[in-house]
């Protein structure tokens, strides 16, 4: 049976909708009363795992799920060995650099060498500053990254921005967009190559739905 890994959080609703459009109903995950982490579609043809967004690619890379939905930002951060099959278009956001609106640095090029940069996306942040040849100290955080500049711990942050409201409410401004991110359909490479459980039929249906 095909197993798909679905991300908790902001991508979940759209992820469930796209599988529903190809006949797989995992909407039980949307029931707030449910604590189930593994469910089977009512037709008994596929099962789904509910995992943290950062863990989707892990389940797919190890082959515990043949398909998964994950943001481009997670793929760039974790560089998993998975097949990247479709840009699903939803979950649009951007990876940005932001500073306090009081900051003297209003562009990336203003940041002095050895600035402190707080981020959940350590690899993305490190690689970006390497690419512009600016030595920085990356401070890894797991959440509420906006507090970095607010408390004065860091000069800037590298973080995911969708509407920009969180930044605004915390007195931060974006000074650079590193890349745009949307949700991606990923697959376990071996399962995709050998077409186990007729995986490719499902992928073709999803391709058609996602209009590629």
């Amino acid at each position: 049976m095909i197993t798909v890994a679905l991300p908790k959080g902001s991508l979940l609703k759209d992820s469930i909708a796209i599988f529903k459009s190809v006949g797989l109903d995992f909407s039980a995950f949307l029931d707030p009363a449910s604590r189930q982490l593994q469910i089977t579609d009512p037709t008994g043809t596929a099962q789904a795992l509910l995992v943290r967004a950062q863990d989707v690619s892990v389940y797919v890379e190890y082959g515990q799920a043949q398909l998964g939905i994950v943001g481009e930002d997670v793929l760039r951060e974790k560089m998993p060995k998975v097949a990247r099959l479709l840009d699903l278009g939803f979950g649009k956001c951007r990876m940005s650099i932001a500073v306090s609106n009081q900051s003297p640095y209003q562009s990336v090029l203003d940041l002095p060498p050895h600035s402190r940069i707080a981020s959940k996306s350590v690899r993305i942040a490190r690689e970006y500053f390497q690419s512009i040849d600016l030595p920085v100290e990356i401070i890894p955080l797991y959440g509420s990254v906006e507090l970095g500049p607010i408390t004065g711990m860091s000069e800037a942050i590298v973080d995911l921005v969708s509407t920009g409201r969180t930044l605004l409410e915390n007195g931060l401004v974006e000074i650079e967009v590193l890349f745009e991110s949307t949700a991606r359909l990923i697959a376990h490479p071996l399962s995709y190559r050998v077409n186990s459980d007729r995986l490719n039929d499902l992928v073709d249906k999803l391709k058609f739905t996602a209009k590629y």
Binding site: R84, L85, L86, D87, R184, A187, Y192, R193
Partner: peptide, 10 residues
């Protein structure tokens, strides 16, 4: 080689 269809499209 990476089965990166999205990358190819971009």
């Amino acid at each position: 080689a990476d089965l990166d269809r999205v990358g190819l499209l971009n």
